[in-house]
Amino acid sequence: MEDVKPTKVIDARGSYCPGPLMELIKAYKQGKVGDVISVYSSDEGTRKDAPAWIQKSGNELVGVYTRDGYYEIVMKKVK
């Protein structure tokens, strides 16, 4: 993770799903191939939903990290 610098960071802590995933999909649609998008979420559902969406959409799940009171989910836009 330390080697991958996010192009965009979305701080969605404090909001319930679908807020964080909505933000992630929005960033994905507005982004370009090669962008690395990081979303911070304190929502347990997003920890599962976001990786599932990243994988189903054919993009790269860089990682899911447990931070201090929140999760960080990182994806790379490959299509």
Partner: peptide, 10 residues
């Protein structure tokens, strides 16, 4: 539906 379920709220 856009999410991994049929409605926003899990």
């Amino acid at each position: 539906y856009p999410l991994n379920r049929v409605f926003t709220i899990p």
